[in-house]
Design a protein around this nucleic acid. Structure first.
Length: 451
RNA sequence: CGGGGCGUAGCGCAGUCUGGUAGCGCACCUGUUUUGGGAACAGGGGGUCGGGAGUUCGAAUCUCUCCGCCCCGACCA
């Protein structure tokens, strides 16, 4: 993409409504524009990041064997009356009425709807286990939306639902999600710590939240500092392996890590003093096992091998995709702006032409642009007629992980500069070598399952 | 919902107390000179002062009312 043809309304000054760093940077980098309290437009570059996050979440769900689908944003109130949540959900639910006076709502979550789909089409245990998910906009009419897309009223969420014959099967689904979530966050370059949490209005027995540590996080958390040393890493995972999934869950939950709601001071004091940590975190996901809470009232039942009709065991699982954009920025930025992890960056590199209009530098940039594009990578070429400082400031602000600086000074020696946004370190090399270097860098994060 | 604050050009703000018909910086347009970390100069375009009602010869400014947004608190991906 050529910057001169792109729509990237960057701001030099910080809009006054933004309090936290991710919100400020998303506004300054021209990623989002507020349309109402807690409701945002995603401008081209923000949208690009959102789609990359969505893509990675999809890939990891597919890898775990979960099936993508799409449910509508608007739901009928009748379904919610069946589960008795229409009244129980309270004013957080945005209710509306159509021209025939039918009660509708903008879905805050989809347990009822997925259960409706399940009961309409599944009647035998032979179709189990089944896990369906979608990535769709939700609306929760928060009392006080804030912090940009971190706590929007409208937000983009992956929500999945598993249906199993027995509690044991459903707990495996729980563990499987646990592992797939860990993998998802690690791919995004985020450290998200699983913590035992409170089940809230979704209800249920077992639940873990995944939290990214950040000063601006809204949740208070308490943990043993050793949990931050555990990584999933490159290990092979077989999502059908019940024991493996269980042992990974046990490995990650053996050490103390709780949100404020489930915190126990008594247990906390068993941790050696130097390892006790109380901090704040951003909740980027949560998984639940809730048994037959919805399947019983909504009659989502199957016949088992003995011919008995039994309610299915269910769980639900969510990742806040739009919130992830803010969480990544909270976890990865500096004074100059955003620092995108390679996995989610909107463009793979920026090409900065220091002397736009100069035949030699223009030609060098064009060639680089073409060659890099041919490698399947997407460069953002700053071809504006601007001074070097302005171009550097823009490219730093929007946070592309790699910058290629092309100027007459370097070209005299047949070199361009490759600079890491994260470390600030530069190396000079002939432009012909750049595509290969970038390809190697991105090979590490280019991790698509065949699905 | 309780408490606090704000609404003036795309963004950041002054002007409001003490009424006299709107200004500054950035951004934008034109030109000249510049050009390896947000250039300088000159010229220029852009505003129903959140909406409505009232007071007044006259309202961004005073009064009433509605709307929107932000911050602190209880709830949540």
């Amino acid at each position: 993409m050529r910057l001169s043809r792109y729509f990237l309304p960057v701001l030099k000054e910080i809009p006054s409504e933004a309090q936290i760093v991710s919100h400020r940077l998303m506004l300054r980098a021209g990623m989002i524009k507020q349309q109402a309290a807690g409701i945002y437009s995603w401008l081209p570059m923000g949208f690009k990041v959102l789609r990359r996050l969505e893509q990675i979440v999809h890939e990891e769900q597919l890898r775990a064997g979960h099936l993508p689908m799409l449910m509508p944003t608007i739901q009928s109130a009748d379904l919610w009356r069946e589960s008795n949540r229409y009244e129980a959900y309270g004013p957080e639910m945005l209710r509306m009425r159509d021209r025939h006076d039918r009660d509708l709502l903008y879905g805050p979550t989809n347990e009822e709807m997925i259960t409706d789909i399940f009961r309409a089409h599944v009647s035998t245990y032979k179709e189990l286990p089944l896990t369906l998910y979608h990535i769709q906009w939700k609306f929760r009419d928060e009392i006080r939306p804030r912090f940009g897309v971190m706590r929007g009223r409208e937000f983009f969420m992956k929500d999945g639902y598993n249906f199993d014959l027995s509690k044991e099967d459903a707990l495996h689904a729980y563990n499987r999600h646990f592992v797939s979530y860990l993998r998802t966050y690690e791919r995004l370059g985020l450290q998200a710590i699983p913590m035992r949490a409170d089940s809230g209005p979704i209800g249920g027995e077992d639940t873990h939240e995944f939290l990214v540590l950040a000063e601006t996080g809204e949740s208070k958390v308490h943990y043993d500092s050793k949990v931050t040393e555990i990584r999933l890493g490159e290990r092979e995972i077989n999502y059908d392996d019940v024991d493996q999934c269980k042992s990974i869950l046990e490995e990650f939950t053996a050490l103390y890590a709780r949100t404020e709601e489930t915190h126990s001071e008594a247990e906390f004091t068993h941790i050696p003093v130097e390892r006790r940590r109380s901090a704040r975190g951003i909740e980027v996901g949560q998984i639940f096992y809730f048994g037959t809470k919805y399947s019983e009232p909504m009659r989502a039942v199957v016949q088992n091998a003995e011919g008995q009709t039994v309610p299915v065991h269910m769980g639900s699982h969510g990742i806040g995709v739009s919130r992830l954009a803010a969480a990544v920025i909270e976890a990865s930025h500096d004074e100059a702006g955003i620092i995108w992890p390679e996995a989610v960056t909107p463009f793979h590199c920026g090409i900065v032409n220091l002397k736009q209009g100069d035949k030699t530098t223009d030609a060098a940039c064009e060639t680089l642009y073409e060659k890099i594009t041919q490698c399947g990578l997407e460069p953002l070429y700053d071809d504006r007629v601007e001074r070097a400082g302005a171009k550097f400031a823009t490219i730093d602000l929007i946070g592309l992980p790699w910058r290629i600086t092309v100027g007459p000074r370097g070209l005299k020696n047949s070199v361009v500069e490759l600079t890491s946004r994260r470390t600030g370190k530069s190396e000079e090399c002939p432009p012909e070598m750049i595509p290969d270097k970038l390809t190697k860098i991105y090979k590490r994060t280019d991790d698509h399952p065949s699905a």
